[in-house]
Structures are given as C-alpha cells and as structure tokens.
C-alpha cells in the first residue's frame, strides 16, 4: 500500500516515484505538507489563514493517520515532507508553527510505532524545492538498510539553515 496525504501540492509524480523505489511488501505513507506558501508578517496574519494552516490541516492529518496507521504492516515507512520553515523565520509564524507541529507528530509516531518496526522521519527541503531535489533522501529512507533511522528530521537545503547572513532584515507583506 502506498498512500500520500497532506495539504501539499505540486508533487504529482510522488506516488509513481515511491511505487518505483519501495521494497515489495513495505507499505509507505507520505504526509506531504510542501506547497508554495506566502509569507505574512505577524501583524497581518489573519485568523482564517492561521486556522487553516495550523489547525484544520493538522486535524485532517491526524484523522487520516488514525485511519491508515492500523492498516500499515510491520516494517512500513512513514515520511513527512515538511517546509524547512519549521526552524522559524520572518513572516513564517503560521508556517513554522504548522511545520513544527508535524515534526512533533512525527516524533511521537516514531515512538508509538517503534514496536511495529515502522519508521517515521521528516524531510525538510529548502524553499521552492522540486521533487527531484529530495528523491535521493526519500529513496534512502525506503531502503531496508534505513530501517533503524526513525524520529529524525533531515534538512535538504544546501546549508541554507546554517547561514547567519540570513538573519538580515527582510521585508514581508
């Protein structure tokens, strides 16, 4: 079984790619939360957007996982695709909050499903990443040899998150 859930978009070939690389007999659940998100300054952030990104999308995600997870076979893999914004950033209050929630959820699931041999990890690409940029890491997490990697977040951003120069004042809408 291969299931792709989450509010993400623009990754149409994700299902095909996962089907290609997943080992036979290994179920894969991908929670895709990558999409093009507008930055919004804290003073202008409206309840409607916050509720959608930080409450309702999470509620949906929990509901999907509640339904799907009991059907996953032992040794399955769960991969969360989350925006690198979980580390924070200017104009990212809603994005950082929702991404951090997904990371928290993933870490909990890693503990909850450990005895079933189900690994749960997060891939966090930089801004505007295409599927090609993270295929290698997806394939790695689906390998049999990666079974013991769980509860981790892998940033795939060419070191963007390490750059102190990014601390510069940035204007947001």
């Amino acid at each position: 079984m291969i299931r792709i859930i989450g509010p993400g978009a623009g990754f149409e070939e994700l299902n095909d790619f996962v089907a290609d690389v997943a080992e036979a007999g290994c179920d894969v659940l991908v929670v895709n939360a990558l999409r093009k998100d507008e930055k919004v300054g804290i003073d202008d952030l409206q309840d409607v957007l916050f509720d959608q990104v930080c409450v309702e999308e999470l509620v949906d995600c929990f509901a999907h996982i509640a339904t799907i997870s009991p059907e996953l076979r032992d040794g399955s893999r769960i991969i969360f695709l989350v925006p690198g914004a979980f580390l924070g950033g200017v104009g990212c209050t809603h994005l950082a909050t929702s991404a951090a929630m997904l990371v928290g959820l993933a870490r909990s699931l890693a503990l909850e499903f450990a005895e079933r041999g189900i690994s749960v990890n997060c891939l966090a690409p930089g801004q505007d990443a295409k599927l090609d940029a993270i295929k290698g890491e997806i394939a790695f997490l689906l390998e049999e040899e990666a079974a013991d990697v769980t509860g981790q977040v892998i940033l795939i951003d060419r070191g963007e998150n390490l750059s102190l120069r990014k601390a510069g004042r940035r204007v947001v809408s």
Partner: peptide, 14 residues
Amino acid sequence: VASKAGLVGMTRAM
C-alpha cells in the same frame, strides 16, 4: 505533543 511543538515553532518564528 504537536501542540507544544507548534508553540516552540511559533516561538522561533516570532
């Protein structure tokens, strides 16, 4: 867990 992780993410962004 997710709620408290979200609060930490919000802390960093703000």
